[in-house]
Structures are given as structure tokens and as C-alpha cells.
Nucleic acid binder design. Structure first.
Length: 504
DNA sequence: ATAGGGTTAG
């Protein structure tokens, strides 16, 4: 663009910054922002709240809390008006970065002033309280929401239901019903659950195993060819021999190998090469009742699967599919996740194939599951290949992805790769979170690298990342490991002494 | 064009 003499305008920058933030390339986003500021210096139009918001969100999503706060101050001093969206980003970011008290305080302040709080603000607090197991407080907030005339929507309800499931208190759902009045949504959700459970328990189907719903064709080793994201016909072309031509074909001036592939395809209606989806959550508010079923199925699938009720989850999937609704990738991801956790690798592979067959786009969570699965079957080393492939397909690496791969590599004892990946992660501008540190401490402790384990504990504290209950469990293990090492060393020394005594 | 649920660690 620049070469041809077109100066990027604020919409160009807005689009680029948005893209970088969503791909977790926050450092690039900041660079673009600064370039935009510089170009704009004599012609200050700094009322662009949306761009500031996108960057603020990006900084918080990669865990750069102090930079985010500094940026927010800059936003204020630049005279850019913060919207309710800005504050919602900030509140959620504070919670997600381990500053729950600060997030809550900010919310309360805004509430006192009246303006700038909306249904989303409430939903953010409700969701974060539920995640922390503080469901009773979350339900109180729902009551307050209703009182102030805000709509309690499906996202808010789902957060609470999942929180209730985690603490095992489904009975509290009744309390929720009392507060959410004048709304058919919650009664529908609960009735949906009752109906579903009734049909799942119908006597004729009892005891039937529904896991064969996803028969696996071919061998598990084919997983690597799937990650090529090619349909079986094309697969042959891209094998070994043709790879060199792939190299030749590579156009140094090409902006996007992905676009090239689309244009090279003979049949434009075949969109099987479009396999990576960056979109995740979509707005629920305005989708209305139409998306109700798929959202509910996804919620209850997660709940069943968390309880390990695999066969029931598959039955639910079957009933749901027979309604003629197309499952979205999240539905498949939930099922796959459960299969993989239980070690049913063949069934998980079957799902992967079904996703491929239906041309349902794979998202970052799907790739995450593949890496989890590879770790389970002792092929964590292939995980890095999968990452490379995904990046080539226009995917991005989020923190969950890094955490999963760190765990898989660590479990395989590949400590060099663990440390390399951790460096890569921090260099790419993503700050480690509590899961990252817990994982690093744990995997190093498990292979007896006590010093390294403590190094990461110190790093964690220095970074201002508060340990949680999982950290406690891991540290207990680490202490035992230290104790055992001392014993081993002591006995070794004793043997040496005995040895020198025997052969003076 | 920006914000909230359903993926990751003991």
C-alpha cells in the first residue's frame, strides 16, 4: 500500500490493530498504534475509543496488567472518552489477571455513579464470581440486576449453571428462578434439562453405549495428515514428492499462502481448505431463541462430560443431531475433549474425521485438543509440528495452547523443549499466567529438577502472579521430592564413606 | 469496530 503511495488512514490502522490483537500479536498492535499516533501528530483526532479499547483488551488478554493500566491512564490523559465497554474490558481483565478485589471495587464505584455499568458489566462479575465458586454472591447480583431492570441473558445464566455444577449444588438453581422473573429464558433452560434427562433415561436405551457414534476409520497415526487440512483426495498430492514443488511455487511476494490456495483451487464451491476459524464467542444477546438449542447442548455437554458421562453425552449429541441442527465446532470440541481425557483416542480420532468430512472449521480449541491427545499417546514431540502447521493455516497461539503444549512436553520429559517453548511464549509477548507457572513447576518437579522448579516459583512471585490451591498441591509434592533427594544424597555419601573405609 | 459463558494446570 505504502509503496504505491497510499497512506494508511485511521480505518486501515483500526483494522490492522484489531487483527493483531485477536491473533495475540499485541506487540505488533502497539507498534501500529504508535505509528498511527506519529502520522497523526499534527492532525489530532483522538476520539477513537474503539481502537484504544481493542488495545486495552489485547494487553489484558496476554496478561500485561501493568502495561494495560498505563495504557488506560494514557487514554484518559489523551482525552479519549472511556465507554462502558472500556470499563468492562478493564474489570474483566482485572479479574482474569488475579486482581479480583480491584475488579470488584471498580465495578462498585461505577455502579455508585450510575452511568457506565450495563448488563455486560454485571455478567462479567457474575461469571468471575461463579468461576471462583462464589455462586451465592453471583446469584445475589442477578437479583440486583433484575431490580435495576437489566436483562439476565443466556450467557449470564450459563456462567452460573456451570458454577453450580462445579460446587455440586444444582438445588440452588431454584433460588435463581426466584430472582429471574418476567423472563421465559431460565425456566426454558431448566425445563430443557429435565426433558433431556428424561429422554436420556428412557428405559429402552438404558445401558446402550453410544460411544460408537464416532467410528474411527484409518489409523491414529494419520493425525498428522489431518493437520495438513487436506481432504483425502488432495492428500496424495501434497505428500513427500510434491513438497519440493510446494517450495518452488512459493511466491516471495505473496501476502497470504492461504489466499493463494483459495485462488489456486479449481472448484470455488469446495471450501474444504477453509479450515481454520478464528472466531469464537459470538454475541448471544441479539441472536434470540434460534441459537438456543445449540448453546444449551454445548452447556449441558460440558456438564455431562465433566462428570465423565461419556455415553450420555454422545446420546445427547445424537438426539440433538436428529433435530437437524448442525453442530458447531464447539460441540465437537467438547466431545473430543472428553474422549481424549478418558484416553479413548480412536473415538476422538473419529470426531476429527467427522469434523473434516463436514467441513466444519477447526478452531484454536480443536488444535489444542489435538496436542492434548498427542501428549496422551506419548507423541508430545509432534505437538510442535501441529503448532507450526496451525500457524501456517492462519491460526494463532493463545495462552491455553501454550499451557497445553508445555504440559504435554513436560509429561513426556522433554525439558529442553519445555524451556524453549516457554522462552518463545514470553518473547512472543504473552505473559505466563497461574496455569503456566503451575504447569512449569509441576513438570520440573516430576522429573526431579528441583532447582528449576523453584526458579519458576520465584519467577511467578516476582511477576506478581498469586499462587492458588493448585500451586499448594504442587508445592507439597515438590517438598517431598526435595526431602527424597536429601535422603538419596545422604545414603550415597554413606556408601562412599563405607567404600573408602573398605579400600583405604 | 471494541466487552461477558462452554478449551489449559494439582
Amino acid at each position: 500500500m505504502k509503496v504505491y503511495g497510499h497512506e494508511p488512514d485511521r480505518f486501515t490502522y483500526r483494522t490492522l490493530i484489531h487483527g493483531c490483537v485477536k491473533s495475540y500479536l499485541v506487540d505488533d498492535a502497539i507498534r501500529l498504534f504508535q505509528e498511527m499516533e506519529y502520522n497523526n501528530n499534527n492532525n489530532i483526532v483522538k476520539d477513537d475509543t474503539v481502537v484504544y479499547n481493542a488495545l486495552l483488551d489485547g494487553l489484558l488478554k496476554v496478561g500485561k496488567l501493568t502495561e494495560a493500566c498505563r495504557f488506560f491512564e494514557k487514554m484518559v490523559s489523551d482525552g479519549v472518552r472511556a465507554s462502558s465497554c472500556s470499563f468492562n474490558i478493564l474489570i474483566d481483565g482485572l479479574f482474569k489477571n488475579g486482581r479480583a478485589a480491584a475488579g470488584f471495587a471498580l465495578f462498585c464505584d461505577l455502579k455508585k455513579n450510575g452511568r457506565l455499568v450495563d448488563a455486560i458489566s454485571f455478567s462479567i462479575i457474575v461469571s468471575n464470581l461463579s468461576r471462583e465458586g462464589r455462586v451465592a454472591e453471583a446469584i445475589d447480583l442477578v437479583k440486583e440486576m433484575e431490580g435495576r431492570g437489566f436483562v439476565v441473558d443466556l450467557v449470564t445464566i450459563t456462567s452460573i449453571l456451570i458454577g453450580l455444577h462445579k460446587i455440586g449444588r444444582w438445588d440452588m438453581a431454584e433460588r435463581l428462578v426466584k430472582h429471574v422473573r418476567d423472563n421465559a429464558l431460565l425456566p426454558n433452560v431448566l425445563r430443557w434439562k429435565v426433558d433431556m434427562e428424561a429422554s436420556l433415561q428412557s428405559p429402552r436405551d438404558k445401558g446402550k453405549d453410544y460411544t460408537p457414534l464416532f467410528p474411527s476409520v484409518g489409523s491414529l497415526g494419520d493425525i498428522m495428515s489431518w493437520t495438513n487440512l487436506l481432504s483425502p483426495g488432495e492428500e496424495e498430492e501434497d505428500r513427500e514428492g510434491h513438497n519440493s514443488s510446494d517450495g518452488e511455487r512459493k511466491d516471495e511476494w505473496s501476502l497470504s499462502p492461504y489466499l493463494d490456495r483459495l485462488t489456486n483451487k479449481s472448484d470455488p464451491s469446495d471450501d474444504s481448505s477453509w479450515m481454520f476459524s478464528a472466531s469464537r464467542g459470538k454475541r448471544v444477546q441479539d441472536k434470540g431463541i434460534k441459537s438456543f438449542d445449540v448453546d444449551m447442548v454445548n452447556t449441558y455437554l460440558s456438564i455431562f462430560l465433566a462428570k465423565g458421562k461419556l455415553s450420555r453425552a454422545c446420546k445427547l449429541f445424537e438426539i440433538f443431531s436428529s433435530f437437524g441442527t448442525d453442530p458447531v465446532s464447539y460441540t465437537y470440541n467438547s466431545l473430543m475433549s472428553a474422549f481424549i481425557k478418558k484416553g479413548y483416542m480412536k473415538e476422538a480420532w473419529g470426531i476429527l474425521q467427522e469434523i473434516g468430512d463436514k467441513h466444519c472449521p477447526a478452531d484454536v480449541a480443536t488444535y489444542n485438543l489435538i496436542i492434548q491427545g498427542l501428549g496422551k499417546i506419548g507423541k508430545a514431540d509432534l505437538g510442535t509440528n501441529v503448532l507450526d502447521r496451525m500457524l501456517k493455516k492462519g491460526g494463532y497461539l493463545d495462552i491455553v495452547m501454550y499451557n497445553t503444549l508445555l504440559h504435554a512436553l513436560g509429561k513426556a520429559g522433554m525439558m529442553d523443549e519445555v524451556n524453549t517453548l516457554f522462552d518463545k511464549m514470553t518473547r512472543s509477548g504473552i505473559n505466563p499466567d497461574v496455569v503456566t507457572y503451575n504447569t512449569l513447576i509441576e513438570v520440573h518437579a516430576k522429573v526431579g529438577h528441583v532447582k528449576e522448579a523453584y526458579k519458576f516459583l520465584r519467577k511467578m512471585l516476582a511477576a506478581g502472579c498469586s499462587p492458588n490451591h493448585v500451586t499448594d498441591t504442587i508445592l507439597d509434592f515438590l517438598e517431598k521430592e526435595v526431602e527424597q533427594m536429601r535422603l538419596r544424597q545422604a545414603s550415597m555419601r554413606r556408601e562412599e564413606e563405607l567404600d573408602t573405609n573398605r579400600h583405604p
